[in-house]
Computed example of a mutant assay.
Amino acid sequence: MIPYSLLDLSPIPQGATPGDALRNTVDLARHAEGWGYHRYWLAEHHNSTGIASAATAVVIGHVADHTRTIRVGSGGIMLPNHAPLQVAEAFGTLETLFPGRIDLGLGRAPGTDGVTAQALRRGVLNADRFPEDVVELLGYLKPAEEGQPVQAVPGQGTNVPVWMLGSSLFGAQLAAYLGLPYAFASHFAPDALDEAVDLYRVRFRPGVTQAPRFMLAVNLFAAETDAEAHLLRSSMIQSFINLRRGKTGPLPPPCADLSTVASPAEIALAERALRVVAVGNPQTVQDRLRGYIDTYRPDELILTGHIFDHAARLRSFAIGAEVMKD
């Protein structure tokens, strides 16, 4: 089987604190390392009372410090929120502290609402500069050129691996043009998946990497029975519906009957957006993951899933590792 990785947003379950979520993240990362996961990525979101990974580079450093071999990185850093030099310095520092273990995944969305983007002192208009900012950032990570007036220290010459993240054709085209590895956000926005993957592979030209490298994101909810796995998934469906209602908040507990908390239209919308999923018992999950691999031929899978109970979350990712090794 292909390499498998893990995307963690450090979810804050209802009744828990950000501290609880971050401790759970470290615990999950340690287990993931033992289970053979290749990467452990964290994502930048702001003004969300249900996600504890807003200071993504800080959490990456904390996770890297509590693990030994697993690669740790961002899935991703939302570049419009930051100056490229500052990102290069932060990830150059991480690479200096944890050599050969740091990844930098870049996204174009702000990871928040417009008001919060303004509070970050960057704003949504910075997305228009995204390609230029990516190129500038890459320049700060490669060896310095003679006479280069501004250098990232640490950063210059660290060659931190950069991934392009995306949920549309824009990211696929930019990744292909720059010769970057590409990760598609099929776990929450799969509509353009087929077209984006084809476009990336067809238009890819050697650049940062010499051949296309594609990572597919899949939601994972695994348990001993299909019924238990579907119950675990209900927390993430509720969270997605709440977000569409404009309500950020802690991760809700599982709900056996979603019709008691949401309308049929809301449930259908969430099911459609979260349809790239492997949910069920180990055999069901293995069959589903093999189907995605056969269909999209990814070079790597990255598994994710908001699960309310930490023990159940550990078991789900343990099952994911077991079936990926077979």
Rank of each mutant, 00 (worst) to 15 (best):
4 Y>S: 12
276 V>K: 06
188 F>I: 09
202 V>H: 14
118 Q>I: 13
38 H>Y: 09
258 L>P: 09
223 A>G: 04
62 H>N: 13
181 P>I: 08
182 Y>N: 03
220 L>M: 15
73 G>V: 07
192 A>C: 14
285 V>P: 07
247 K>Q: 10
163 W>V: 07
210 Q>M: 15
133 D>M: 00
172 A>L: 01
314 L>C: 13
61 G>E: 03
205 R>P: 06
130 F>H: 05
313 R>K: 15
148 Q>H: 07
100 G>Y: 12
39 R>Y: 01
70 I>Y: 06
215 M>D: 08
166 G>K: 02
237 I>Y: 02
92 G>I: 02
212 P>S: 15
122 R>M: 05
225 T>Q: 05
234 S>E: 07
321 A>R: 00
252 P>K: 00
247 K>W: 12
314 L>D: 14
178 L>Y: 09
22 L>E: 00
241 I>L: 09
307 I>W: 03
196 A>E: 03
261 V>Q: 11
243 L>T: 14
150 V>S: 11
178 L>K: 07
90 A>V: 06
184 F>K: 04
31 H>L: 15
119 A>M: 15
243 L>Y: 08
123 G>R: 00
31 H>R: 15
40 Y>L: 03
300 E>I: 11
264 P>M: 06
178 L>P: 02
147 G>A: 11
219 N>R: 12
177 Y>E: 10
195 E>H: 04
310 H>Q: 11
270 A>S: 14
34 G>H: 12
90 A>K: 10
153 V>K: 04
68 R>E: 13
14 Q>P: 10
204 F>E: 12
36 G>C: 10
127 A>C: 04
139 G>W: 01
25 T>Q: 06
269 L>Y: 07
259 S>D: 15
166 G>R: 01
163 W>E: 04
280 G>W: 07
59 V>R: 02
83 A>Q: 01
221 F>P: 07
24 N>V: 15
62 H>F: 09
43 A>H: 08
147 G>V: 05
324 M>I: 12
187 H>W: 12
59 V>T: 11
44 E>W: 05
289 L>E: 01
235 S>M: 08
130 F>A: 00
294 D>H: 15
41 W>V: 01
209 T>R: 13
112 T>R: 01
165 L>C: 00
110 P>K: 02
209 T>A: 13
274 L>P: 02
148 Q>W: 03
303 L>E: 09
207 G>L: 11
156 Q>D: 12
274 L>A: 04
32 A>G: 10
116 T>A: 05
103 D>N: 11
248 T>E: 04
19 G>S: 08
267 I>R: 04
21 A>Q: 09
302 I>W: 07
189 A>K: 08
326 D>V: 15
76 G>P: 10
201 R>W: 07
219 N>K: 04
315 R>S: 08
83 A>H: 03
37 Y>W: 11
186 S>M: 14
21 A>E: 13
107 G>E: 05
72 V>I: 08
116 T>L: 02
157 G>Y: 10
195 E>C: 11
216 L>S: 06
287 D>L: 12
217 A>E: 05
163 W>D: 08
239 S>N: 10
254 P>V: 00
96 T>P: 07
260 T>W: 10
192 A>Q: 12
250 P>V: 01
59 V>Y: 04
228 E>Q: 09
43 A>D: 08
103 D>H: 10
3 P>V: 13
89 E>T: 06
34 G>R: 15
183 A>E: 01
197 V>M: 02
210 Q>G: 15
278 A>L: 10
260 T>S: 15
326 D>H: 12
89 E>Y: 03
94 L>Q: 09
229 A>Q: 08
139 G>R: 02
278 A>I: 12
